[in-house]
Amino acid sequence: MAISTPAASAAAVEVSGVGRVFQAKGGSVTALHNIDLRIEPGELFGLLGPNGAGKSTLIKILSTLLLPSSGSASIFGLDVVRDTARVRRIMNLVAGGDFSGYGLLTAREQLAMFAQFYGMPYAEGMRRVDAQIEAFGITDIRDRKISALSTGQRQKLNFARSFLNEPWMLFLDEPTIGLDVSAARDVRERVRAFQAEQPGRTVLLTTHYMAEADEMCDRIAIVDHGRILAQGTPTELKRMVQKETLFIVGVDELPAAVSLGTLRELPGVISVVVRDADGADGNGVGSPVTRLAIALREDAALGGVISALAAAGAHLREISKSEPTLEEVFVQLVGRGISESDSEQAL
């Protein structure tokens, strides 16, 4: 059946009322409850949640591996149930801990095999294979058998495979699980570079690494028990648990001309307290510094505080913004930490 060109306003990912129920021996298990989600072209969107939250189920539905029990979902306007073949031509998937492929093939042969599956002409496929090997810095293993590769090398190869068809929609399901810090950083950098090469490329990432989500994602949805509890930019989510903005301002010493009470009376200032008085490096080494913890209604109020300190003769030594972590956001929304959630899951 012919379909029409999707509207230019179509989202990269549009999920409407998607639910998924699995049949199990003890009855049915609802993995997703009526999920609504919209991801714009070019976004790197994160699904953050503990094991069993429903993140992978949603990715499986969007990547055409699984049918939804209810609702609808589309990728760039193409329905994942009706337009399956078309969706598969513009997407790719990387799953963490994936050791797929054939151990007897070399890394280059494996990529060449997948290039055939992705439908590009042979010569173009081989050009892309060599380009990805170069981009991921794995030229030293290109002629090594897959069975002889380390976990990190195999995952880099897996990423290289997923970039071969230059997908508009890339699904990353816990992609850095089991990787060491250096390898995880490498693949995160490649993902960002991949998006920057062609505006419009969209990435949906599932992870339960808070720092990874915070660092990489434009927006995040926190998922638990098959429901989206909140979504927004990392900053917006953090604002949900901390209404005010907290700055740490370090000065040589607090001049006598300015008291904490004076600072508290400035517009936009909620509170000012001396956090600590210590050495410059925080360990008592170097010239002393006095740190003030200043809570503001909004960032703009900081200007007045700095001016007041400068007018009183204080020498500004440092300034930093203190934000709640995503972990704190998660705890507030879910009611438990992500590691606790995983432990419960394991039980």
């Binding site: 990547s63 055409t64 591996l65 799953a95 599956f117 495979r161």
Partner: peptide, 8 residues
């Protein structure tokens, strides 16, 4: 999984 999600 990779076969199913590929256009093959």
């Amino acid at each position: 999984t990779l076969y199913i999600t590929a256009p093959v």
